[in-house]
Amino acid sequence: MPTWFIADTHFGKQPGGRCKWSGMSAGELDALIEANWRDRVAENDVIWHLGDIGPDWRRLATLPGVKHLILGNDDKKDKEERAEIEASRIFETVRNRHRLEVDGGSLFLIHIPAEAKRKPAHEVIHGHLHHLPSVPGHRSVSVDRTGWAPQRLEELLTRSS
């Protein structure tokens, strides 16, 4: 089954700068990200959300895929909401970081790339930087960098940082 990655959906509260440079409203961005998710991800596919799901995170329950969450900085702000996220059963797992074994090695999944080891033994897959470029050995799956859509593992590993 395919494995997908996405970050920084910010459902329900898109960053102002994102709306400005994309030329879309917050509602249009939410709808586009959701439509692209539905277009790509099948019900039994695995999808890793690498943080900053947004205040309307419950909408993820209606999206396809077996979901895993790496908490982002915005997801950790409210302890009560974090407890709701963990109890919701929308996500199979909720973690701060994770090492994912894939053919040919390991991927280190985290939201903020600066929180990864300085010289990790694995490729770092992250969000948080939005449209800013990643450093070598790091790959961003922020929707700003992936055409507002989840990215399949094979696509991720063949594109430049």
Rank of each mutant, 00 (worst) to 15 (best):
S106P: 00
G23N: 09
E86S: 14
G137W: 15
F108H: 08
D39S: 13
E81Q: 12
K79W: 09
F91W: 13
L156D: 03
S142Q: 06
R152C: 10
T62D: 10
E34W: 05
E28T: 04
R40A: 15
D74E: 11
P55A: 03
D56G: 08
R99S: 11
Q151R: 14
N36F: 01
P55V: 13
D30L: 13
R95W: 00
R58N: 08
V94G: 02
L100R: 10
A87D: 15
E155W: 02
V124W: 05
E84F: 00
H128Y: 07
L157H: 07
K67A: 06
D78C: 14
L109T: 05
G12T: 00
W21K: 04
P150E: 02
R82S: 11
W48L: 08
R159S: 03
L29D: 04
V41Q: 09
W37P: 03
D74N: 15
R97H: 11
V135W: 09
S161V: 07
V102A: 08
A42W: 00
G17Y: 15
P136A: 13
G51K: 00
I47F: 07
P15R: 11
H98P: 01
L29T: 12
T158E: 14
F5K: 11
V135P: 01
S142E: 02
I85S: 11
I53Q: 00
L60Y: 09
A61I: 10
H126R: 08
G104F: 15
E84R: 15
D103F: 01
R89N: 14
R40V: 04
A61L: 14
G16C: 01
F91Y: 15
A26Q: 09
K20H: 11
V41I: 14
H131K: 14
S88N: 15
A31G: 06
K119L: 14
I110H: 02
L107W: 05
H98Y: 13
I110E: 01
E92W: 05
S140Q: 04
A116E: 10
T146Y: 09
G105N: 12
M1N: 07
R40S: 12
A61V: 10
E81D: 02
I112N: 13
S140C: 09
D52L: 08
R95F: 00
H128S: 06
V66M: 11
Q151S: 06
E123K: 11
V141M: 09
R145N: 06
W4K: 10
A26G: 15
D56W: 14
H111M: 02
P150S: 03
Q151E: 12
E84S: 04
A7K: 11
H111T: 04
N73I: 08
A114I: 12
E115V: 00
V94H: 03
I53S: 02
I112H: 10
T3F: 07
I110N: 01
W21P: 04
T62F: 01
D30V: 10
R118Q: 15
M24F: 06
P150T: 03
I33N: 09
T3P: 03
R95D: 12
A26Y: 09
G147A: 04
